[in-house]
Design a protein around this nucleic acid. Structure first.
Lengths: 129, 129
DNA sequence: TTTAGGGGTTCCAGCCACGGGAAGGTCAAG
DNA sequence: CTTGACCTTCCCGTGGCTGGAACCCCTAAA
């Protein structure tokens, strides 16, 4: 299967697939004309990567997870640790964003949003609390 | 005031301050020895930028906000629009992260985390739902 | 047979908002 | 006079791609 079909099947852009080969996440074969030839296992790995990325795992996490996936003798605790660490990072990000949103939504509510120059948002940013 | 003192006063790294000059957000003066000389207005702008960045505004948003801040004849609606757009982006990000977290926390809970290889996290990533 | 088109390939640059580090100039204290 | 803490510019790297140029390959139609 060529890269375009793989892109269609996995939902990943061809550019991304080439990038994943570049950084050694997948190793498709090559036809005599230089085209990449993808086996089912390559496509399966790419789908795995697509789902892992959709859950927000970094590429390096994906590399680790893929290695664990391929290792029949892994311990599930190793997988769980990676997932838990990532979960903690997500929670931290959510907390950061919520703090921003809270501050920001207060300011937005306090702003008249008319044609007058007076604006509590700018006042706050300017240090006038 | 030199860049180190400004960094101390604003909490921004010197590197960041130089970068902000590079992209024309601030225009400090120069001493005869080539050192940047910061006036109170520069420091004030930098504090403004620090607060805006802390609220997650992009640099381009900051540029816009700073221009509005300096323009006495602005309409508060212009400021509010920028803030509201940003708020919407934050909400979208939070929603994305929450979806990830929900999926991920289910998987983490379902994973035994012991020394056996069986793992629902990998099963899910592998497409076995 | 040529031509058009839709694949594929490589490589290089750019995104965002800086951070690290090299190589060198400047200044105040001891 | 030396030391060490500043300051300067410059260039590279980050993550995870994306866009585009310049080129090759393959098939079908005129």
């Amino acid at each position: 299967m060529n890269i375009g079909d793989v892109a269609d099947r996995t939902g990943l852009p061809a550019k991304t697939i080439r990038y994943y080969e570049d950084i050694n996440l997948i190793k498709p074969l090559r036809d005599s004309n230089g085209y990449r030839r993808f086996r089912e296992q390559d496509i399966h790995k790419l789908s795995f990567l697509g789902r892992a990325r959709a859950l927000g795992f970094t590429i390096e996490d994906c590399r680790t997870l893929l290695a664990l996936y391929e290792d029949e003798t892994r311990a599930s605790s190793d997988v769980k640790r990676v997932a838990q660490d990532h979960l903690a990072q997500i929670d931290a990000k959510i907390a950061d964003l919520r703090a921003m949103r809270d501050t920001l939504s207060h300011l937005v509510k306090a702003c008249a949003g008319d044609d007058r120059p007076d604006c509590p948002i700018l006042k706050d940013l300017g240090g006038n609390s």
